[in-house]
């Protein structure tokens, strides 16, 4: 089989499997998997900037929250219906990530990490500050009646699962297409050796800018979908923790692999799910996994798989 055929078989196979699972899974895991697919879409967005372009952002919660609040506030205060509200969330994410990119890309390395962290923190505090509209930490519920898209009730578990799968499939395909497209290959080259790419005649700044906007917009789409499908928007989704999560998922699953974000989100979700039955301090698991990964498996699960068996894995 050619590499191309293998890639299509593997990624298509995953989507088919996810489709079939919805008829088999018990209700609890069915709901979990819907959540995981939306969060994995967020991780796919993060991976485009971190895994493929080599820029480590500590502020993606800003984009996730921009999507969530762009959608949620649109429904809550402007009386938008689902489709325009989703669009508002996506646009909010594109604008916010574009604005942050213009500032943060003037820096590099550690400074880039701190700058993204600081602006995201300012975003989180802004959500708290305008508590009158956002209801701060407490958040607000998006009612079932407000979650109807073209007559389909998105709060119904089956519809919700299907919507989550559509979103994830879209993100996966965009990501796969991007990294096999010349533009994506240039991003990978920038990650590997930025100065060399510049001296081949590429404009590094524009490439990174586009990568950051694409990454931020996908993250925002996931944020908007999360709020819509699970009917809730709250400030905790804008907090530092939600910037650390996609980093953790992508590191665990394998940075710079198309499947890595999904694998990492799946594992981490169930790890935390299992441990939260034992202790309230479930973030301990996240901390331990982060340290162990940086120490022993910086390539993550899919990265190790690629190094050892499937050299063709994109």
């Amino acid at each position: 089989m050619s590499a191309r055929a293998k890639i299509i078989a593997l990624h298509g196979g995953l989507l088919v499997l996810l489709f079939v699972l919805q008829f088999i899974l018990p209700a609890y895991h069915h709901g979990n998997l819907a959540r995981i697919m939306v969060l994995a879409s967020y991780a796919v967005g993060y991976n485009i900037l971190f895994g493929y372009t080599g820029l480590l952002s500590l502020g993606h919660a800003l984009f996730f929250a921009a999507g969530m609040y762009g959608m949620g506030l649109g429904i809550q205060h402007l009386g938008l219906t689902v489709a325009p509200a989703m669009l508002a969330g996506v646009i909010a994410g594109a604008v916010v990530s574009g604005a942050l990119a213009l500032l943060a890309l003037r820096t590099a390395g550690v400074a880039f990490m701190i700058v993204t962290l600081m602006f995201a923190q300012a975003g989180y505090l802004t959500v708290l500050y305008f508590g009158e509209y956002t209801r701060g930490d407490e958040g607000f519920v998006i009612q079932q009646a407000q979650r109807m898209l073209w007559g389909i009730d998105l709060s119904d578990p089956t519809n919700r699962y299907f919507a989550a799968l559509m979103l994830f499939a879209l993100c996966l395909i965009v990501s796969l297409w991007l990294v096999r497209h010349p533009f994506g290959k240039t991003l990978i080259a920038i990650r590997e050796n930025e100065e060399r790419v510049r001296m081949l005649g590429y404009n590094i700044y524009t490439h990174k800018l586009i990568a950051m906007v694409v990454s931020g917009t996908i993250s925002a789409t996931a944020g908007a979908a999360y709020g819509l499908l699970f009917g809730y928007a709250g400030a905790s989704f804008a907090s530092v923790q939600y910037s650390i999560f996609p980093l953790l998922w992508v590191l665990l699953g394998g940075a710079g692999t198309v499947l890595g974000p999904f694998i990492g989100t799946l594992f981490m979700f169930y790890l935390i799910d299992l441990s939260s039955g034992i202790t309230t301090a479930y973030m301990l698991i996240a901390g331990v996994v982060l340290v162990l990964l940086t120490l022993f498996a910086p390539q993550g699960l899919a990265g190790e798989l690629r190094n050892r068996i499937w050299r063709w894995l994109p």
Binding site: I188, A189, E192, N193, R196, R198, M199, L200, G201, N203
Partner: peptide
């Protein structure tokens, strides 16, 4: 990068290829 696009090419003194590609 604009100079390169106008028809210059530059090879590095210290080898600077994309090692993992």
């Amino acid at each position: 990068h604009v100079r390169i696009r106008r028809g210059m090419a530059y090879t590095f003194q210290i080898t600077s290829v994309f090692e993992r590609l």
